[in-house]
């Protein structure tokens, strides 16, 4: 994504795979270039009980796209009379993005969830909907390079929910503290078959 638009409003997102669980996290900053305006800007949206979607990028597109995706998820549920699966959602988001191939939504979406067999799934995609599914972690936003560095070094496979929470939190905090366009607190969701653990984190306030 063009870094001009990527860093206009700032913000970063991150998702990680654990043992029978997934975690998804974001910072809370909303800014205009170097000026911070909001410190409670949501970048993670609940898709179903077991799927969350996170988006970093241009704030207006995050809001427009999250509303559009919410509408499509609701329509899917009504038509199919069942909850959407993570992979289905991923390709639904991807095709929504590709529809705007030549005037794209400037977002980096991540999807984290558990499927009907409670098998964890994460993926990210670029602004025109090229999906990448991984079996460790995915990152996006203004601090993507920093996140890639911390995740690559701190991540290990098959973490239990509490350990996964600590790993994703440490990765996110370390990365956003080195990025002026991200920070001002963070939100972490850990999805397990039984429940969703949601916690907010303190970070530097500058």
């Amino acid at each position: 994504m063009s870094s001009e638009i990527d860093e206009y409003n700032g913000g970063s997102v991150l998702a990680m795979l654990g043992k029978n669980c997934v975690a998804i996290a974001s910072d809370k900053r909303f800014g205009m270039k170097l000026m911070t305006l909001g410190t409670e800007f949501p970048k993670i949206f609940q898709a179903t009980d077991k799927i969350y979607i996170a988006m970093a990028g241009l704030a207006t597109d995050i809001q427009t796209l999250s509303e559009l995706i919410r509408y499509k998820i609701n329509m899917y549920k009504l038509r199919e009379e069942r909850e959407i699966e993570p992979t289905t959602l991923a390709y639904m988001v991807a095709s929504t993005l590709y529809e705007r191939r030549f005037s794209p939504y400037y977002v980096s979406p991540l999807i984290a969830g558990l499927d009907k067999n409670n098998k964890p799934y994460i993926c990210n995609m670029d602004l025109i909907g090229c999906v990448t599914t991984t079996n460790d972690f995915v990152v996006g936003g203004a601090a993507d390079d920093c996140l890639l560095g911390t995740c690559e070094a701190l991540y290990e496979p098959d973490l239990e929910p509490e350990d996964l929470f600590e790993t994703i939190s440490q990765s996110l905090i370390s990365a956003v503290d080195r990025n002026a366009a991200s920070g001002w607190g963070a939100v972490v969701h850990v999805l397990t078959p039984e429940r969703v653990i949601t916690r907010t984190l303190k970070t530097r306030q500058d």
């Binding site: 920093c146 560095g149 911390t150 690559e152 701190l154 440490q170 370390s174 503290d177 080195r178």
Partner: peptide, 16 residues
């Protein structure tokens, strides 16, 4: 540097 620096912040003086 962008990849390494936040990792050092995390590990060297346990900033977080």
């Amino acid at each position: 540097a962008e990849l390494i620096q936040p990792f050092l912040d995390n590990q060297v003086n346990l900033k977080f």
